[in-house]
């Protein structure tokens, strides 16, 4: 293997994650990445593609996605329509077969990075339906009596938000890594990647406050990295003095997205300091 993944300019990966990516590439196994929202699961695939200079194919999974959608799609409706109303030749079934994302990755002339994003969104049985395809890196199209086999084993990255648990048989075939929420130090690096010319004091204060909010018990949705980045952006545009962040939380709406959480934070602050003044200032 000529290339080794060492992270990319836009993505901060922990050392162990880099090693695990390389092991997955060498062993040719799909890499399953789990972790809280905003820990950069999806970005990892982009980063691998960028760093190794390979094409990235993204397969976004939705609740209605079926495993077959990734392989190929037989457009029966179009064919029916053509047969009935069109004047196209409908005898060539090949014209109505379109490859899905997995199929696309298989027939590619070069090795690609295939991202199967949010696999847990689909039906519980979905991953099991892909077992053979990911093992053998091939599938069969009965309509054409043809086998599609991977020319180059794609580097497969699968992300999961743990909304559903994945079947054991599927897990056995994967290499698994749980991305922990970044430490404040790592978060500082991440923020700097996005805002290279930002004041360190502002970052530190913002990050301090951010982790303090995350610690509060009972939030329905803890703010994640993307919320922090939005917040810092807002702080910058608003020209907020870092000193002010220590005392209050401007633009709280960018961090907490639901009403209950804002109220929870209010109560928390009031309990902590026991003063009405805080509440007034905070709103």
């Amino acid at each position: 293997m000529g290339h080794e993944y060492r992270g990319s300019s836009k993505y901060i990966a922990s050392k162990e994650l880099m090693e695990i990516v390389n092991v997955a590439i060498v062993l040719g196994k799909p890499l399953l990445i789990k972790g809280e929202p905003g820990t950069g699961k999806t970005l990892l695939a982009h980063s691998i593609a960028e760093a190794l200079n390979k094409k990235l194919i993204v397969w976004n999974i939705k609740s209605t996605t079926k495993a077959k959608d990734g392989l190929y799609f037989y457009d029966t409706v179009q064919r029916l329509n053509d047969a009935r109303f069109g004047d196209r030749d409908v005898s060539d079934i090949r014209r109505y077969i379109k490859l899905g994302k997995l199929g696309e990755a298989f027939v590619s002339e070069e090795q690609v990075v295939l991202l199967i994003d949010e696999i847990d969104k689909a039906d519980i049985e979905f991953p099991n339906d892909l077992l053979n395809e990911l093992d053998e890196m091939s599938f069969f199209i009965p309509e054409l009596n043809e086998e599609i086999k991977a020319k180059h084993r794609p580097i497969v990255v699968i992300t999961s938000n743990a909304e559903k648990e994945l079947p054991d048989a599927f897990l056995r075939r994967c290499i698994f890594h749980y991305i922990e929420f970044p430490t404040p130090e790592m978060m500082e690096q991440i923020v700097k990647v996005h805002f290279p010319d930002i004041e360190t004091k502002l970052i530190r204060e913002a990050i301090k406050k951010f982790y303090w909010i995350r610690e509060i018990d009972g939030l329905r949705k803890k703010p994640s990295t993307s919320e922090l980045l939005d917040w810092i952006k807002a702080l910058r545009i608003g020209g907020v003095d870092p000193e002010r962040i220590e005392r209050e939380i401007p633009f709280i709406g960018t961090l907490l997205k639901c009403e209950q959480d804002t109220q929870r934070l209010e109560r928390f602050i009031m309990n902590q300091r026991g003063s009405y003044e805080v509440k007034r200032r905070f709103i």
Partner: peptide
């Protein structure tokens, strides 16, 4: 297999993280 391919790079640290990625599939 990873062990024989030398993927742990003779470090227990690698063995810990990579081994965990290979052997444990749920946090």
């Amino acid at each position: 297999e990873a062990l024989h391919l030398g993927l742990f790079k003779s470090s227990l640290n690698h063995l810990y993280y990579i081994g965990r990625a290979l052997l444990v599939k749920n946090e």
